[in-house]
Design a protein around this nucleic acid. Structure first.
Lengths: 135, 135
DNA sequence: ATACATGCAAATTGTTTGCGGGCAG
DNA sequence: CTGCCCGCAAACAATTTGCATGTAT
């Protein structure tokens, strides 16, 4: 992979990110360093990085493509349905039963994703406060 | 919910489907019974059905919104990465550890999705055949 | 030097919306 | 009768693509 100025910036952003970013978010961050970087470059670079296994794509309920560094410890995602906050969950309950699933289904499973949705601690508090003030 | 001709058709399709269907697929099926049914009607009806809890939305890696009947037994999905075939998996490894996850994260988890990707038995066979014919 | 990457703009694709007429309750 | 629903066409948003130019190797 040819190492252009733009690609360095994008790689850096992906690798620093604490959670999966959309193409738009990536471009916004990139613009801090290189305001002329085009959205199509973001997409093309991400595509290349996907092919090369440098990042992976995630989709939550909103259907937006988000991207995160590959090669992290295996993990899943927790999304707050109120504020949109996303975080990684290091636990994976699937490994233990993946073998059984393969046997039962006849599939050769290569990949899986688990997304959890709920209210983050902050939004739970906010909600509780709102309720009591209405009383 | 007002029971129009179109909605009867759409409800029927969702409820009969063996796996989640995209809006386009739903419209194609609907056209067998009512060729003038518009795609926007499909979307608006699905939206309404979502609100009323009559169906739910799923997204696989391709990012397309797919819809399936709600109120089925809790289950997840297995998608063949070669032919796109999708099927339901009745197993769910999360219930047992959901409580732990809530405690660990502080989230109140309301919903989760698990998608498994791999090769279905047929595509495994096809692949094996291709390989041997190349030898 | 040359192939590959970029920026820009236009094209596609999936989904949503505005409007005038139609139909279920 | 009345408000909700429909079909159609236009609007939108996310993503992809074509093309002329720039640049890493």
């Amino acid at each position: 992979m040819r190492m252009t100025r733009q690609r360095k910036v994008l790689l850096e952003i992906i690798n620093q990110a604490a959670n999966p970013l959309s193409a738009e978010e990536i471009m916004q961050q990139a613009h801090l360093q290189d305001p002329s970087l085009a959205l199509s470059t973001v997409y093309r670079t991400l595509e290349k990085m996907l092919e090369m296994g440098l990042c992976q794509q995630i989709r939550f309920q909103d259907g937006l493509a988000r991207f995160e560094q590959a090669g992290l410890v295996h993990h899943h995602h927790l999304v707050c349905t109120a504020c949109g906050r996303r975080e990684a969950v290091p636990t994976c309950p699937l490994h233990q039963i993946q073998q059984q699933l393969e046997t039962a289904s006849g599939y050769k499973i290569t990949y899986h994703e688990i997304n959890l949705y709920g209210l983050c601690p902050d939004c739970q508090k906010k909600l509780a406060t709102e309720k009591s003030s209405h009383a």
